[in-house]
Computed example of a mutant assay.
Amino acid sequence: MPDLASSGPLLVFDFDCTIIHVDGDDEVQKLHPEGKIPESSELHGLYSTVGWTKFMAGVFKLLHEHKITKEEILKLMESLEFTPGMEDLIRTSVENYNAKVIIISDSNSVFINHILQHKKMDHLVDVVYTNPARWTDTGLLEIEPFHHQTHCDLSTQNLCKGTILEDYISSQSTKFSFVGYVGDGGNDFCPALRLSENDLMCVREGYSLQKQIPKHKETKGLEIKSEVQYWKSGHQILARIEEKIKEL
Rank of each mutant, 00 (worst) to 15 (best):
T156A: 13
W135K: 10
K175D: 12
S107W: 08
T83R: 14
N131Q: 10
S170Y: 11
F176L: 05
G180C: 14
D153S: 11
A133C: 10
L165T: 00
N98E: 12
F146T: 09
C160M: 06
G85P: 02
N187A: 04
K120F: 09
F189I: 05
V179A: 03
F189D: 01
I143F: 09
V203Q: 05
I104S: 03
Y168N: 01
A99L: 11
N108F: 04
N131I: 09
I143P: 04
K100F: 11
M86L: 01
S109H: 09
D199H: 05
M86E: 03
L116F: 13
D188L: 00
D122C: 05
T138F: 11
P191R: 02
K100H: 14
F189Q: 00
Q149A: 10
A192R: 00
L195T: 00
H216W: 15
N158P: 12
Y168H: 09
R194A: 04
Y168T: 03
Y181K: 03
G185L: 04
S93Q: 11
E166N: 10
H148A: 12
K215Y: 12
I112E: 04
F178L: 04
E205M: 13
P145A: 07
D199Y: 05
G186W: 12
K120N: 12
I112F: 05
K215M: 15
T219G: 04
N96D: 14
E197D: 13
C202Q: 05
E205V: 14
D153R: 12
C202N: 09
T83A: 07
V94E: 12
M121W: 05
D199K: 04
L209E: 00
E81F: 07
I213T: 08
D126N: 11
G183Y: 04
F178Q: 02
N158W: 11
T130M: 09
V128N: 07
L124I: 09
V128K: 08
C160R: 03
C152G: 08
E95T: 14
Q157V: 13
D153L: 10
W135S: 06
I90S: 09
M121T: 13
H151M: 11
I164S: 02
E144W: 11
I164L: 07
